[in-house]
């Protein structure tokens, strides 16, 4: 069977994307994107709608085929089996519809792929995951009757169940790939979920999240990839990327940065910067 690389091997805790391109049909949607991420970091992908963020994420999670190279823990993701990938990373899609009237605990339970969990362990894992996303006591509710924000959090709980420990038994980190995890949440739950994701990274896991909200990105991301027109516009640490002219260029809209109070987190506001 598969052999995990030893944990000391530095590549085993990295995501390496090198000159990755993705085409759907004949149209090339992502072109020549390179960046790398370490487990233990929260990496945000930002950029205007249609800039290829979701498409790039789908290539990283094994859903779309790509040219170039995308290596997770040193292995080309396009060559890994669904079962193997499922052990090392969880994926929160941008939108999730289910086809039959499952209740919340049944949806979350689909994420418990660890066969060693007994019936009780399973129920406990489901309950804990729901508590983490602020949905304590929702187990018996019908998924289809929840609000969009609640559904999104149920899906996140499902993903958390799948990669519960940020670091696997063999010492290898696990990864969360999240597509706009907080875009339909209210402000309290946005912060709650962002803290949860940042905590996952702080505990040694890897987090790659497509982000819509620049202020949340500034508050939580360690490194940021900026996409525009299917290409990488910039990649770097938070302070490198959170620059008025760079963001203005990315979004084709004048943006400025301010700071509120003693906080060292910049706030992005309209106006001021020049549009190139």
């Amino acid at each position: 069977m598969h052999q995990f690389k030893l944990a000391e091997d530095p590549s085993s805790s990295e995501l390496h994307v090198e000159r990755a391109s993705v085409s759907i049909g004949r149209v090339q949607i992502v072109q020549d994107v390179s960046f790398h991420a370490h487990a233990g970091e929260f990496v945000a992908i930002i950029g205007p709608s249609g800039s290829g963020k979701t498409t790039l994420l789908k290539a990283m999670t094994g859903e779309l085929s790509y040219s170039g190279s995308i290596r997770l823990a040193g292995m080309e993701t396009g060559k890994l089996s669904a079962e193997y990938l499922a052990q090392m990373r969880g994926v929160l899609p941008q939108a999730s519809q289910i086809s039959f009237p499952l209740n919340v605990s049944e949806v979350v339970g689909l994420g418990v792929i660890d066969r060693r969990q007994g019936r009780d362990g399973r129920a406990r894992r489901i309950r804990d995951a729901l508590a983490k996303v602020g949905l304590h006591g929702f187990e018996g509710r019908s998924y289809q009757e929840l609000s969009g924000g609640e559904q999104q959090r149920v899906q996140l709980a499902r993903v958390l169940c799948q990669v519960w420990e940020p670091v696997a038994d063999d010492g290898n980190p696990r990864w969360l790939f999240l597509d706009e995890p907080v875009s339909s949440l209210d402000i309290k739950h946005q912060y709650q979920i962002m803290q949860l994701a940042a905590g996952y990274a702080a505990a040694g896991g890897g987090v790659v999240a497509v982000m819509h909200d620049l202020n949340l990105t500034a508050a939580f991301a360690d490194r940021i990839l900026v996409m525009k027109g299917g290409k990488r516009l910039s990649f770097g640490g938070r302070d490198e990327v959170m620059q008025a002219d760079l963001l203005s260029e990315a979004y084709d809209f004048p943006l400025a940065l301010t700071r509120s109070g003693e906080s060292d987190v910049p706030l992005v506001v309209p106006g001021g910067g020049s549009v190139r």
Partner: peptide, 18 residues
Amino acid sequence: LNGLTLGEAAASHIGIRV
């Protein structure tokens, strides 16, 4: 089939050979 209720992509994400 349970996994497939999430859609093909998500089923594959949780390790099902769709």
